[in-house]
Simulated assay, not measured.
Amino acid sequence: MNPSRLIYKVFLPLLLMACSTDARNRNPNLQELGFRFEMNLNLPLYSPLTSTGNPVYIGNTGTGIRGVFVMNTGFDQMRAFEASCPNHPPNSCSTMQLEGQNAVCPCEDYEYSLFTGQMLNPPEDGQRYYNMLEYRATRSGDIVTISN
């Protein structure tokens, strides 16, 4: 067999598989916007984030779609999630509300953990349900930067 044919038969399919994207994981309900927002943990509005398990809602215009929930999940690790319910397009009731360490969608009472972003009460109807859309959260000293 010609060595160049062997390369095409063996390596080309491997290359194509490595370059494929998994569009199935993309949430069709939420548009992923680019933004950057900085928080100073010394300010009273953000001081709850200095302790583990205290979430804060950031509703500033241009920060996510419907705002962002930020939580200190321990060991100085911050997590940030979109405040719009991931299981339907944004509408008049899709901005989730904080209930302790969870976010709840007032449309269908879907509940999500702010430690993981996972949906806690998915219906058993065979449909696909999405977890919360997570944003990048980095901490440098007392400054937390949320971005996408």
Rank of each mutant, 00 (worst) to 15 (best):
L45T: 13
Y46E: 07
Y46W: 15
Y46Q: 07
S47D: 10
S47M: 11
P48Y: 06
P48H: 08
L49W: 00
T50N: 13
T50C: 05
S51D: 11
S51F: 04
S51Y: 05
T52K: 07
T52M: 05
T52W: 00
G53M: 01
G53C: 02
N54E: 08
P55N: 06
Y57A: 02
Y57F: 09
G59A: 06
G59W: 05
N60A: 14
N60T: 14
N60E: 13
N60V: 12
N60L: 08
T61W: 03
T61A: 14
G62C: 12
G62L: 10
T63N: 09
T63C: 14
G64H: 14
G64P: 10
G64W: 12
I65P: 07
R66Q: 15
R66W: 04
G67Q: 13
G67A: 12
G67T: 14
G67S: 12
V68Y: 01
V68M: 07
F69A: 10
F69N: 11
F69Q: 10
V70H: 02
V70W: 02
V70M: 06
V70E: 03
M71R: 12
N72G: 02
N72D: 00
N72Q: 02
T73K: 12
G74F: 00
G74E: 04
D76E: 08
D76H: 02
Q77N: 15
Q77E: 14
Q77V: 15
Q77C: 06
M78Y: 02
M78F: 02
M78P: 08
R79W: 01
R79N: 09
R79H: 08
